[in-house]
Design a protein around this nucleic acid. Structure first.
Lengths: 208, 208
DNA sequence: GTCTATATAGGGATAGAC
DNA sequence: GTCTATCCCTATATAGAC
């Protein structure tokens, strides 16, 4: 693997572990046993590294969102979909950890992140409307609006929240599982009895 | 007003406007037209300022939580309660803006903030159970658990979310109003028809 | 491509005069 | 209490040798 790729890979790992603002270019170079000068031969500045990592996140997330809008999902599909989304978020969790900070400093990242948030909301709307048409979900159009806003909000900040309240259990599987359940519990009250119970049953695995 | 108080007041204002990590002690001193040395005569370090501001937040929030646990609330009380909570959050919004960062650097703040999160969850549980007993809210114990987790999560990150998706409308009244409605919409699906409609009606004011 | 050395800037914090 | 001057440290980034 060439140096450029290794820098990106190492940066992502360190950003995720310690936070982007707490990870200097010196740290990154030091971790790889290269000189800081070498790092700056491959990248104009730190922002360029952040930007390229963000592009990777964006590509994967948009891919998932596209795949999910192309067909009607049932409740179990939604479960799987959320799992896949949370896996991407996990891989790029540094973006979420210091979100305000990051969006404040990188114009381009801000614009694109906002676009992704809108796309997520649209996907949620399309899924929920599909479920409503199929008669599985019962809600007014206004209720679906606020529901989908809540879905995106909870999915976006779940890891920060979980990390703030219970920083002990850092096992990714558990953190993500609880996040998926937490989002599904937003949808549950609008579902029929059977589906509603199913969510509680599936969710029970994750509650520790 | 003495210098010590003015430093605290100015710090809070600048932290809220620009974020705590982006506000140096030099900025604070400069804004007040005093010397950096003078600031350090009144405070050991920047962390002490953050800690004291946090204490103000903690005192106000615990006061509100205590007041709300002492008696049974109906749905309209809850609306008022949330308004008051969001006002406190607004006054100390710098805490929420860089939450992970802050909790990572200040042990004491982290411990106390976690305690407040637990207290908030307990208050939410006590209110929801009260509503359930009164027959206004219909939900299993498990559903109430995840509902209250979502209430605290949405209340905690609402401003960050709103600021990330639509950074145009910074009018505090609108931001807070939408936040209150967003939290109430979590509770709505568990309520009876009348109450559920009431929330939509009250909420319509805030939707822009 | 990679290194060493260094420029530049800023933040936190202290010493000592007034 | 307040100021000036300054120290120390770290971070981003560049220059020039190899």
């Amino acid at each position: 693997m060439n140096t450029r790729e290794r820098i990106l890979e190492t940066s992502l790992r360190l950003f995720n572990s310690f936070g982007e603002p707490n990870t200097s270019t010196n740290h990154i170079a030091d971790e790889m046993n290269i000189s800081p000068g070498n790092l700056y031969y491959h990248f104009r500045n730190k922002g360029e590294i952040v930007g390229l990592l963000f592009q990777g996140y964006e590509r994967r997330m948009l891919e998932l969102l596209s795949a999910s809008e192309s067909r009607d999902l049932d409740v179990e599909d939604m479960w799987l979909f959320l799992h896949l989304a949370f896996e991407i978020i996990w891989d790029y969790r540094f973006l979420y950890r210091d979100l305000d900070n990051l969006l404040g400093r990188h114009r381009l990242v801000r614009r694109h992140f906002q676009r992704i948030m809108r796309r997520k909301t649209d996907t949620a709307l399309s899924i929920c409307r599909g479920l409503a048409k199929a008669g599985v979900l019962r809600a007014s159009e206004e209720e679906i609006d606020s529901l989908c806003r809540n879905i995106v909000l909870v999915a976006t900040y779940w890891m920060s929240f979980d990390n703030a309240v219970r920083p002990r259990d850092t096992n990714p599987g558990n953190v993500l599982g609880r996040g998926v359940y937490q989002v599904m519990s937003l949808v549950a009250p609008f579902l029929d009895g059977d589906q509603r119970v199913l969510i509680q049953t599936l969710g029970r695995r994750y509650i520790v």
